[in-house]
Simulated assay, not measured.
Amino acid sequence: MAVGAGSEHPQRPARDEPATRDNWMYPPAGGGWTWDQVQGLILPFDWELLGGKIVVRGASKWWHNLVRDELYYRLRGAKPRNLVINSEQSVFFNENNVPRPDIVIFERQGLDVDQDCIPVENVVLAVEVVSPGSRTEDRFLKPAMYAQAGIGYFWRVERGEGNVPEVHECWRHKEAGFYVPSPDRPTHVGTFKTDVPFPVEIDLRSLIDF
């Protein structure tokens, strides 16, 4: 990408120019990157599209990956047959927002296994496992996005005492359009037990002791 002589900042890409390894950090004016512009982008790190910007996903710790993977397998065994579970799956909200929740559970009806993204309309649950590099996104930015997009349930997994995970269970308030703590048990310590969006009971220490 050309840089003018004496210029301090590279020229921003044109509105319809695809993202590349050289220009990805400079979203086009007037709305930023769209999914069509970035879906073929290959970078040497994980990333997602948030607010028209390519956001680098911070390197996760072993604890984060262990908890995410173990929780994935427990939920996979508990979910009903009409639902699908994936980890690190892109979800299409709109052309400027395509996040990748740590775990996403969605309805399979009408979907093609070859598609790149899951439509947000199919998603029933999003899960984020908080790590030091993602606290702001996982605690504030993403829950607000997920609720606004209509995802009914959101779980935030935090690192508790003795490294044992704690699950903060949230339900979307239909009238207000944002997440509120589960009325029955908003924070699960020791054992995670809920009936929505499907029944599941998990010994949280078992996610790190096996």
Rank of each mutant, 00 (worst) to 15 (best):
Glu107Ile: 01
Ser87Gln: 11
Asn82Arg: 13
Gly110His: 09
Asn97Pro: 03
Leu75Met: 11
Phe92His: 14
Glu70Trp: 11
Ser87Trp: 09
Gly110Thr: 00
Tyr73Asn: 10
Pro99Gly: 05
Asn96Thr: 15
Val104Ser: 11
Asn86Thr: 00
Ser87Ala: 13
Glu95Tyr: 04
Ser90Leu: 04
Arg76Ala: 12
Ser90Met: 07
Glu107Tyr: 02
Leu83Ser: 05
Arg74Phe: 08
Pro80Trp: 01
Arg108Lys: 14
Arg81Glu: 09
Glu70Lys: 15
Arg81Trp: 00
Phe106His: 11
Ile103Asn: 07
Lys79Val: 02
Pro99Gln: 05
Asp102Phe: 03
Glu88Ile: 05
Phe92Arg: 14
Arg74Glu: 15
Tyr73Arg: 14
Ile105Cys: 03
Val104His: 10
Pro80Gly: 09
Leu75Arg: 12
Ile103His: 03
Asn97Lys: 02
Arg100Glu: 10
Tyr72Leu: 15
Tyr73Trp: 15
Val104Asn: 08
Gln89Arg: 13
Asn86Pro: 00
Arg76Pro: 01
Leu75Val: 11
Gly110Cys: 05
Phe92Glu: 07
Glu88Gln: 14
Asn86Asp: 15
Glu107Thr: 01
Leu71Ser: 08
Glu95Gln: 11
Ile105Gln: 03
Ser87Leu: 05
Ile85Val: 13
Asn86Glu: 14
Gln89Glu: 10
Pro101Tyr: 04
Ile105Asp: 00
Asn86Ile: 00
Pro80Arg: 06
Tyr73Asp: 12
Gln89Ala: 13
Ser87Gly: 05
Arg76Thr: 06
Asn97Phe: 00
Phe106Trp: 10
Arg100Gln: 11
Val98Met: 01
Glu95Trp: 02
Arg81Cys: 02
Gly77Ala: 13
Gly77Val: 04
Tyr72Cys: 11
Ser90Ile: 03
Ala78Trp: 10
Arg74Tyr: 09
Ile85His: 08
Arg100Gly: 03
Asn86Trp: 04
Val98Ile: 10
Arg108Ser: 13
Arg74Ala: 12
Val91Ser: 02
Arg100Tyr: 03
Tyr72Gly: 09
Val91Gln: 01
Ala78Gln: 02
Ser87Lys: 12
Glu95Ile: 08
Arg74Trp: 09
Arg108Gln: 10
Gly110Asn: 12
Asp69Ser: 15
Asp102Pro: 07
Leu83His: 06
Asp69Cys: 06
Asn86Cys: 12
Asn96Ser: 14
Leu75Asn: 07
Pro99His: 06
Asn97Gln: 11
Arg76Trp: 12
Ile85Asp: 05
Asn82Phe: 10
Val91Tyr: 06
Arg81Ala: 13
Gln109Leu: 08
Glu107Asn: 11
Ser90Thr: 08
Asp69Thr: 14
Asn97Arg: 05
Arg100Asp: 01
Leu71Cys: 10
Pro101Lys: 01
Tyr73Leu: 14
Asn97Trp: 04
Glu88Phe: 02
Glu70Pro: 05
Arg76Asp: 12
Val98Ala: 13
Arg108Gly: 15
Phe93Glu: 04
Leu83Lys: 04
Asp69Trp: 11
Val98Thr: 10
Arg81His: 07
Pro99Ile: 00
Pro80Gln: 07
Arg74Pro: 04
Ile105Ala: 00
Arg108Ile: 03
Glu107Gly: 06
Val104Gln: 10
Asn82Leu: 04
Asn94Arg: 08
